[in-house]
Simulated scan of single mutants.
Amino acid sequence: MPPRSDSAQRGPHPALKGLVESYTGTSLTGCTPGIHLGTPSLTLPLIMSLRDHPVVQLQSRTGADRVAYQGLVAGLQLAPVLIDHASSAMTLTVELTPRGLTELFGARPSDWFGVSVHAADALGRSVEELRQRVEFLDGWPARFAAVDAYLLALRRDRRSAPTLADRAWRTIRATGGGLTVEQLAGQLGTSRRTLQSCLVSQLGVGPKALSRVARFGRARELVHARLQHRAPEPTLAAIAARVGYADEAHLIRDWRLFTGCTPIRWRDVDAFAFSD
């Protein structure tokens, strides 16, 4: 039987704008087991595993230090996360913004920089109750609606004005990491030193690294589309120029840092990224 994939994605309820980027539901069956690369992004994923398919994270490709999660939340990352992918998997992922993590759950993103934690331990028992409720609903629209309702109820309890870190994150996302640190600080009406200190304190990472992640994210989309269709274009040099790298070599440098491989080898190393 050939592999089967059922996936869906949509944005959150309008009242959650700025707190949640998207919901993604994925169901895979009949796949060849292997390792999936969770690559760095600007969001913090809350991942709920469904139908007895836990998310298994590895510390290395040797399979040492395996940790299984029914639900996990990951902080901002500057290195790939290795996921031991079974032949079948079913997950619902909520992509939280840093402000969303704080306003909805009262948590500080910097506390989880570079790590993954059990969602129930980090965010409260209600997250596990949500996972169990969502697990037995039929269809992604119903599951997404249940997550909307849960998060909207949380938001009624916590509302806050955007901080400097929130505004910096939003600007980096909007510009795709295209501003220098000096330009970003100037646009936000602060100094480079204050911006650096604020972001490291609240998010765990400075503006330069966040901008690199933003550029990588844009490049990742373009490289994925090229490899998915096995097309020769656009070239890596063209992609590098389009998203703001100085040249192809700088793109490949960041790609190795964030994935552990080159762009062209990505499909060979992580077939699950191309399972749709």
Rank of each mutant, 00 (worst) to 15 (best):
P45L: 04
I47F: 00
I47A: 10
S49P: 04
S49D: 04
L50P: 01
R51F: 07
R51S: 13
D52H: 14
H53N: 14
H53A: 09
P54H: 02
V56H: 09
Q57K: 13
L58R: 14
Q59N: 10
Q59M: 11
T62V: 03
G63E: 11
G63D: 11
G63F: 09
A64K: 15
A64V: 13
D65T: 11
R66I: 07
V67P: 00
Y69P: 02
G71A: 15
L72S: 08
A74M: 09
G75D: 02
G75E: 01
G75W: 02
Q77W: 01
L78F: 09
V81T: 15
V81W: 04
L82A: 06
I83M: 10
I83N: 10
I83L: 12
S87T: 05
S87N: 03
S87M: 04
M90F: 10
M90R: 15
M90Y: 12
T91F: 14
L92Y: 07
L92A: 10
L92Q: 05
V94K: 02
E95A: 15
L96C: 04
T97P: 06
T97W: 05
T97Y: 08
P98M: 07
P98T: 07
R99A: 13
G100P: 01
G100E: 01
L101D: 00
L101Q: 02
E103S: 09
L104R: 10
L104I: 07
G106W: 14
A107W: 05
R108W: 00
P109Q: 03
S110D: 00
D111Y: 12
W112T: 02
W112S: 02
V115I: 12
S116M: 06
V117N: 00
V117L: 05
A120S: 14
A120H: 08
R125Q: 09
S126G: 03
S126H: 15
V127C: 08
E128P: 08
E128Y: 13
L130A: 07
R131N: 04
R133L: 11
F136M: 09
F136Q: 11
L137D: 05
D138S: 14
G139P: 09
G139A: 13
G139H: 12
P141H: 15
P141V: 15
R143C: 08
R143P: 03
R143N: 07
F144M: 03
F144I: 03
V147W: 01
L151N: 00
A153V: 07
R155P: 00
R156T: 08
R158G: 06
R158M: 07
A161D: 14
T163P: 03
T163Y: 04
T163M: 01
A165S: 14
A165E: 01
A165M: 03
D166R: 13
D166F: 12
